[in-house]
């Protein structure tokens, strides 16, 4: 007997059920199809403007920093200013993302931008994000052709650009966007939820930032006006 059959057999014996029990299978199918939401915190069910404010407040509470810019064209300048302020080299490893490519990098003559996955020597990365989650100030990043995962973890400083219209209330809304993009039951290889920079409290319960992942997480938020689903943020997850 295979390991699989032995284990499933033992599980079924404990559940006192035979394989192919139609009622049990129906219960499982129903559960997977209906995808009912659990209790969604009221704090996450708010309108678009409040979502962005909460996203910022929660991200900052988790030791991320956040700069707002009016339009995407302002991102290169904001990035250069951030690097200068923190005395970091004017050099970036950026995700090979057409949206990032399209930014006016030539306005920052001192800044060198390389594309691709992270190398050990990269000090700062720049990536986009799939969504921001206001509930806890969390970024949601999906891996893919334009989004190498190593950029999120190897460099000392991770800069993320995100549009205000990408900020949703609760986690569930972010999952709905993923489903809409990838189809039900399908996910990219990696979904990263990132809430602030890397940290540890393993030594005497004192919190230290920058354990293994980035020491700094900086968010550049593009205030691109109300997003398409932002007119009614209050009905989400009811």
């Amino acid at each position: 007997m295979s390991g699989r059959d032995a284990i499933l057999g033992a599980v079924r014996r404990s559940l006192k059920r035979a394989a192919g029990d139609a009622a049990a299978l129906a219960a499982v199918e129903a559960r997977l199809d209906t995808r009912e939401r659990g209790p969604v915190p009221a704090r996450a069910q708010i309108d678009a403007k409040a979502r962005v404010d909460l996203f910022q407040a929660m991200a900052e509470e988790h030791s991320a920093t956040l700069t707002r810019v009016a339009v995407a064209q302002d991102v290169p300048g904001a990035v250069a200013t951030y690097l200068k302020k923190h005395n970091l080299p004017q050099r970036l490893r950026a995700a090979p993302d057409p949206e990032i490519d399209a930014l006016p990098w030539d306005t920052q003559s001192l800044l060198t931008v390389e594309r691709g996955r992270a190398e050990a020597s990269d000090e700062t990365s720049l990536t986009g994000a799939f969504a921001g989650i206001a509930e806890t100030g969390t970024l949601m990043l999906l891996s893919g052709e334009a989004a190498p995962t190593t950029l999120n973890f190897l460099p000392d400083t991770h800069i993320v650009m995100i549009k205000a219209s990408q900020v949703v209330g609760p986690y569930e809304d972010a999952w709905d966007l993923v489903r809409a993009k990838h189809g039900p039951g399908e996910l990219p290889r990696t979904v990263n939820f990132i809430t602030g920079p890397s940290r540890t409290a393993d030594i005497e319960q004192t919190i230290q930032l920058g354990a293994h992942g980035p020491r700094r997480l900086h968010i550049v938020l593009v205030e691109d006006g109300p997003g398409e689903e932002s007119e009614d943020g209050t009905g989400d997850g009811a």
């Binding site: 929660m58 891996s143 290889r189 990263n192």
Partner: peptide, 24 residues
């Protein structure tokens, strides 16, 4: 666990590197 609102990194992994993935 720690009294955090959310842990810093929550990662959902679904299989190996896809053909288009630059890493993984």
């Amino acid at each position: 666990a720690t009294g955090q609102e959310f842990t810093t990194y929550t990662t959902v992994s679904s299989g190996p590197k896809r053909p288009e993935d630059p890493d993984g």
